[in-house]
Computed example of a mutant assay.
Amino acid sequence: MSYLAPIVVGVLYVLAMSLIRAPHRRPFNAIMVAGAGAAYISGGGFGVWEFPAVAALTYVAYRGLESWTWIGVAWLMHTAWDLLHHVKGNPIIPFSHDSSLGCALCDPVIALWCLRGGPSLITLVRERAARGGTAGEAAPRT
Rank of each mutant, 00 (worst) to 15 (best):
G72M: 01
S96H: 14
G118Y: 07
E66A: 13
M77I: 10
W49A: 02
G35K: 06
A30H: 04
G47M: 10
T79M: 10
A53E: 05
Y40H: 07
A129V: 15
T123M: 10
N90A: 02
A80S: 14
A55H: 00
S67K: 05
I7E: 11
R141H: 00
C103Q: 03
G132Y: 07
S18P: 10
F95Y: 13
I20A: 05
I93S: 00
A74N: 01
A22E: 15
A30D: 07
G72W: 08
I20G: 03
T69W: 04
A16G: 12
T134C: 02
V9C: 12
E127D: 15
C114N: 02
L112G: 14
W68P: 04
M77N: 06
L76P: 01
R141M: 00
G136A: 10
D82M: 06
A36S: 09
R63T: 05
L83D: 08
L76I: 12
K88R: 07
G72A: 02
R128A: 09
A135P: 10
R126L: 14
A53N: 00
P91T: 07
T58K: 01
R26E: 06
A56N: 00
R25K: 04
L15E: 05
N29I: 10
M1N: 12
V60R: 02
G37C: 04
H78T: 15
W75A: 03
Y40S: 01
A111M: 05
R116A: 11
G35L: 08
R26F: 02
I41R: 03
N90D: 04
W81D: 00
E50G: 06
E50H: 02
T142N: 13
N29W: 10
R126F: 08
W68E: 07
A130Y: 03
P6S: 12
I31G: 07
R116H: 11
I31Y: 08
G132I: 11
V14E: 03
G43Q: 03
G136L: 13
A104S: 09
M32W: 13
I20N: 04
H78S: 14
W113T: 04
L124N: 07
G102M: 01
G37Y: 04
V54T: 12
L76Y: 10
L112E: 04
L57G: 01
H86Q: 09
M32E: 12
I7Q: 14
A138W: 03
G47P: 12
H24V: 14
R141V: 07
C114V: 02
I71R: 06
I7P: 13
Y59F: 15
R128D: 08
L12A: 15
A129E: 14
A138Q: 04
P23M: 01
W75E: 10
V48Q: 15
Y13Q: 14
L101F: 02
L101M: 11
M77C: 11
T58F: 02
G89M: 03
M17L: 06
P6Y: 06
E127I: 12
M77S: 05
A80W: 15
G37Q: 06
